[in-house]
């Protein structure tokens, strides 16, 4: 029974959220915040895989989010809606409800392939040189998107709302909350499974000492390749969800500022701590929304707050520990390793 407690808890949470959204107890604004929380959890936990667990310093995560966002929104708009750019829908719009997750996964795969842009140079280059490659990759992705005029270029791309409407015509349930929740849980399960597998041990070994790991027969290139692709693929899924939750994407919204946000979430939570990155993603999203009335002061207050937090807890909130390390009784319900 105890083994099932986490799935049951998740199911209850899911049912409550869906119910609240269905009976419109929480308005659209609150729903959007919840969506962003879920998306940010995916972003921070996927970046944590590279920056926290593997110990590399990747600061171009937003590039992969952009690839996922664009690929999935172009596909869903072309397939399920009538648009000026792509003409009549290629598939019946009712299929959107089932086609949407497939499209998200395709977006994730595209982002994972773009991850090769970083993964292959990472075989030879180390720490700060790799950081530069990720920044350059972010720039390259953004400028490539700006130069493709078909998908709007610098003007951005829209029309994803109509995909959501098409899904709601099929059945009137809060679809975005459904998909964000499912993909968030899926991401966390994948990352947890990955980190407790043999590859995960390899990732930990690379963080501690790459040369020693290689001598101890860890195939470092293979582990790096898989980890980078997994991380960027999950970021791509988060991008697809983000694009459909907002209904509009612009290359400018995936620049280095977005990457900085992702970095902040990872290091605020604590490097290599999965529960830490969940916690910090939720807290960070809440903080952004709570301080919204301050307008421009917000962007001074939040960095200041983070600097102060760093001064008092220089290892992040959790600091390379999981929740179950701090409260050992939780281990009965939720075994991490």
């Amino acid at each position: 029974m105890k083994r099932l407690s986490v799935p049951v808890l998740l199911l209850v949470l899911f049912a409550v959220l869906m119910g609240l959204a269905w009976f419109e107890v929480i308005d659209v604004y609150l729903q959007t915040i919840l969506l962003f929380m879920g998306i940010n959890v995916i972003i921070s936990s996927s970046l944590n895989l590279v920056n926290g667990n593997m110990g590399e310093f990747s600061c171009g995560h937003a590039g992969f989010i952009a690839v996922g966002a664009y690929v999935s929104s172009v596909l869903s708009v072309a397939l399920f809606t009538k648009s000026r750019v792509f003409g009549a829908p290629l598939l019946p719009p009712e299929w959107a409800a089932f086609g949407f997750p497939v499209i998200l996964i395709i977006g994730g795969l595209a982002a994972a392939l773009t991850g090769l842009l970083v993964a292959i140079p990472s075989f030879r280059t180390r720490d700060d040189y790799l950081a530069i490659i990720t920044i350059a990759a972010n720039y390259i992705i953004i400028t490539t998107i700006i130069n493709i005029d078909k998908i709007g270029g610098a003007r951005g791309f829209m029309g994803m709302r109509r995909v959501i409407f098409a899904m709601e015509d099929f059945a009137g349930i809060p679809w975005m909350i459904l998909w964000v929740f499912i993909f968030m849980v899926l991401t966390l399960v994948i990352i947890r499974r990955y980190m407790s597998s043999t590859y995960g041990k390899g990732v930990e070994a690379i963080r501690q000492d790459e040369v020693a790991a290689e001598i101890m027969s860890v195939n470092t290139n293979r582990v790096k390749l898989i980890t980078f692709m997994l991380s960027s693929g999950l970021a791509g899924i988060a991008g697809g969800l983000y694009a459909h939750a907002v209904g509009y994407v612009n290359p400018k919204s995936f620049d280095l500022l977005k990457s900085t946000e992702a970095l902040v979430m990872v290091y605020l939570g604590g490097m290599g701590s999965l529960t830490g990155s969940i916690l910090s993603a939720v807290l960070f999203t809440l903080l952004l929304e709570l301080l919204r009335p301050l307008q421009i002061i917000k962007w001074v207050a939040i960095p200041l707050l983070l600097i102060i937090i760093m001064q008092f807890r220089p290892e992040g909130i959790m600091g390379h520990r999981e929740l179950s390390d701090i409260f050992p009784k939780l281990k009965k319900f939720y075994k991490f390793k």
Partner: peptide, 27 residues
Amino acid sequence: LRRKGANRLYVVITALMAGLILENGNL
């Protein structure tokens, strides 16, 4: 942060935040 022996990446994040403060404080 250096005195506390924090991981150097936390110092990098602090630098990023300090940059944001300078920009937006100016604004």
